[in-house]
């Protein structure tokens, strides 16, 4: 966990960058998440104080949108596409395999903090179904069989 004071300072800096306009709240949260990989509580409280928005409303926005996470994520985010094209091509089998191989449920992070497993609502790569995005890289036409090797490679990269 980062020290609260630095998190607060960073959050304030990000608010300042957006000019403190209340309609920028989502952009501000996105920038904070880019910085820390999740939304630290200290940062949200600092944003609220700075922008004079009640913490309850920030919490509402942070929990309404799927892309925000209130828990720290691992080094690599694994997003299993749950779009229709991926579903009919058996994406659910990939999700099950990942759960088994990583020993986590969807939404959880592995104990070594390397991977966080999540589901995403269509990556718009329907022609390559089924796809899984890992650390921003799209893996097309993925089969269950390839998963162990791919996970090993990411672990090796460190």
């Amino acid at each position: 966990m980062k020290k609260a004071t630095t998190v607060e300072a960073k959050a304030k800096e990000i608010v300042k960058k957006h000019g403190g306009d209340k309609s920028s709240l989502i952009c501000i949260l996105q920038d904070i998440q880019n910085e820390y990989n999740y939304l630290p509580k200290e940062a949200l409280l600092a944003v609220g104080a700075q922008m004079q928005i009640p913490a309850s409303r920030i919490y509402e926005v942070a929990t309404f949108y799927n892309s925000f996470s209130l828990r720290p994520r691992g080094q690599y985010l694994i997003e299993v596409c749950a779009g229709t094209a991926c579903h009919v091509q058996g994406a659910f089998n990939l999700m099950d395999r990942l759960k088994r191989d990583l020993g986590v449920e969807c939404g959880e992070t592995t104990k070594d903090n390397v991977f966080t497993l999540e589901e995403v609502r269509c990556l718009g790569c329907c022609s390559l179904a089924p796809v899984v995005r890992i650390g921003g890289n799209i893996h097309p036409y993925l089969t269950q069989d390839e998963i162990p090797k791919i996970l090993r490679n990411y672990r090796k990269q460190g």
Binding site: A82, G83, A85, R121, G124, C125, C126
Partner: peptide, 11 residues
């Protein structure tokens, strides 16, 4: 905000 899963023309 092309949200329909299975559509990607706007992208």
């Amino acid at each position: 905000d092309e949200g329909d899963p299975g559509a990607y023309m706007d992208r």
